[in-house]
Amino acid sequence: MAKIDQLRAALEALQPQHLDVLDESHMHSRGLETHYKAVIVSPVFADLNAVKRHQRVYACLGELMGQVHALALHTYTPQEWAQQGVAPASPTCRGGSA
């Protein structure tokens, strides 16, 4: 199973109402299947600050976290997503030294 599919499957534990997992490795110089962006909308995030939300995601991913170089997380409650409706664009890679 491809890594992106493994990430999606693991994130289903959060019972997302919306889930996008994008492989953004092509925007970076570290090779294939290294950089990902996840947009997760779940009621589990209610009353959690950003750090706690990310910890919930990391707990779901477990050992998969050691297999990726970078994971950009955008976590929303359904109410936040209804207001925002879109996650921010990922920045252009500035390389390892910038």
Rank of each mutant, 00 (worst) to 15 (best):
R53W: 00
R8H: 10
G31A: 09
A82G: 09
S29T: 13
L19S: 07
L48D: 11
L22V: 14
P78W: 03
R53F: 01
A46N: 15
R30L: 13
C60L: 07
H54V: 08
L22W: 02
A38H: 02
L14G: 01
M65H: 02
V57N: 00
L7K: 02
N49S: 11
V51L: 15
A9L: 09
P78N: 09
P43N: 14
Q83E: 14
H35V: 11
D20V: 10
S29G: 13
A87F: 03
H54W: 07
L11T: 08
H26V: 13
A72F: 06
R30A: 15
A82C: 08
A87K: 03
P16C: 12
L32Q: 12
A13Y: 10
A70P: 02
L48P: 08
V44S: 15
L64M: 04
K3E: 07
L22T: 13
V51E: 14
L61F: 09
E24P: 08
R56N: 06
Q55R: 14
A87Q: 05
D5C: 06
K52P: 07
A50R: 15
H35Q: 06
L73Y: 00
A50W: 07
A87D: 02
G66Q: 12
L48V: 08
A38V: 00
L11Y: 04
E80A: 09
V57K: 00
Y58A: 12
V57L: 03
S90H: 12
A9C: 07
H35T: 06
E24T: 10
V86Y: 12
E12V: 05
D47L: 13
H26D: 15
H35I: 07
A9F: 07
R8K: 10
Y76E: 03
T34M: 10
T77H: 01
P88E: 05
K3A: 06
A70K: 04
M27A: 12
G66L: 09
T34K: 09
Y58R: 11
Y58W: 06
G66P: 03
K37Y: 04
V68T: 01
D5T: 08
T75E: 01
L11I: 05
A13P: 05
I40C: 02
L19D: 04
G85L: 10
S42F: 00
V21W: 00
D47R: 12
Q17C: 14
V68C: 03
E80P: 05
K3P: 08
L71V: 04
Q83S: 12
V86R: 14
Q15C: 13
S25E: 05
E24M: 11
N49E: 13
A70C: 04
P16K: 11
V41Q: 02
L14E: 00
A82H: 12
Q17G: 15
Q84R: 11
L71K: 01
H18N: 11
H54N: 14
H74N: 10
K3Y: 12
